[in-house]
């Protein structure tokens, strides 16, 4: 798209290779794969709100396998304890010492399934890990491996015996999106692929974890102009002023949007962020960060609709801001 040579070294070919590799397993979900990668590259996490069986696990596994990363899956149930997530210290009689046994969170890529089924206590343990990149057990704080990427899922149809995540906690996720059902043709393709043998078993590593870490560093170098920052702030500010919104997005939303923008620009082999990046990402980054007021809920206005409104109304800055770099 851009003619000038990128300053970065890895970038595009690797990203493409990664996506292509994941697509061998997941059919017709390129946008969702991209969003996951953006979250991964900018050190964020993803919340999927979807019905079971649409390929969430398969996608995460494929990503993990393509990276040669350690993959863990935690099925959240009402009786799951925080230590089941973080790990626990057990007494080793031979060494006469407590030995820490890693919980499933201690991996590079983690699928946290149906997090709204577990108790708030356990949820808190997970969310701490998401935010801080570390877990605390037995009064000891342990750093998690890098890279660290969590894909959490919520089941939207069952409400009985669930503990919906508080809105404030949702803020910890960079994106929230759905995977959705495949089209008939895509579904046929899925059937064809798994007819003999599941393709996930043959998936090869295309990118090392070290390379991913390098890319994460490079992403932060992507230039965000004052103009674009202004646009981000205008959008986030828009959520706070909208008449249907009870609680708008926090400054953390602005940061998230900017970081995601950097990653998205980087993925497109561009070393600066343009408003189009932000505009594309905004619905995924903002939809779970606004709390509608009761009027809006009663008149069945959705979060997506509000975000769409705001995006349409906020003027895209097209003239260079007066401030220097």
């Amino acid at each position: 798209m851009e003619k000038h040579a990128p300053e970065s070294t890895v970038s595009q070919p690797f990203v493409d290779r990664l996506i292509d590799n994941v697509e061998k397993v997941v059919v017709g979900k390129r946008r969702e794969i991209e969003l996951s990668l953006i979250a991964m590259l900018s050190g964020g996490h993803v919340l999927l709100e979807d019905v079971p069986g649409v390929g969430k696990t398969m996608m995460v596994r494929a990503i993990a396998k393509s990276l040669g990363a350690e993959f863990k899956r935690i099925q959240f149930t009402p009786d799951l304890l925080p230590s089941d997530v973080t790990g626990v210290s057990v007494y080793n009689q031979q060494t006469m010492d407590f030995v820490f046994r890693k919980g499933p969170i201690m991996a590079n890529v983690v699928l946290a399934d149906e997090i709204n089924r577990t108790s708030p206590k356990t949820q808190a343990a997970l969310l701490e890990a998401l935010e801080e990149g570390s877990v605390t057990t037995d009064g000891e704080t342990r750093e998690l491996d890098k890279p660290f990427f969590v894909m959490a899922t919520q089941n939207p149809i069952e409400y009985g015996g669930t503990y919906p995540l508080p809105e404030a906690q949702l803020d910890r996720f960079l994106f929230k999106f759905k995977i959705g059902y495949p089209s008939a043709q895509e579904e046929l393709e899925v059937l064809n692929r798994v007819e003999r043998k599941h393709p996930i078993d043959e998936l090869k590593e295309v990118l090392s974890l070290e390379e991913l870490l390098t890319m994460q560093k490079e992403v932060t170098k992507t230039y965000v102009d004052e103009t674009v920052k202004t646009y981000i702030i205008s959008l986030v500010n828009g959520t706070r002023k909208h008449h249907a919104v009870h609680l708008g997005a926090s400054p953390r939303a602005s940061i998230a949007l900017m970081k995601a923008g950097q990653a998205y620009a980087y993925m497109q082999n561009r070393d600066y962020v343009i408003p189009d990046d932000i505009k594309f990402l905004a619905p995924f980054a903002l939809r779970h960060r606004v709390l509608l007021n009761s009027d809006a809920k009663l008149s069945s206005i959705t979060n997506d609709r509000v975000i769409r409104d705001i995006i349409d109304q906020v003027t895209v800055p097209v003239k260079k801001a007066a401030a220097k770099r």
């Binding site: 343009i274 189009d276 505009k279 349409d312 109304q313 003027t315 097209v318 260079k320």
Partner: peptide, 27 residues
């Protein structure tokens, strides 16, 4: 170049193809 581009935006606006509020330059 910057002014020329801005002038083009102005001309387009006058020609009845105005840019919508939330429309990015690329769109």
């Amino acid at each position: 170049f910057t002014t020329a581009y801005e002038r083009a935006l102005w001309l387009l606006d006058n020609e009845g193809i105005p840019r919508a509020e939330g429309e990015t330059l690329r769109e």
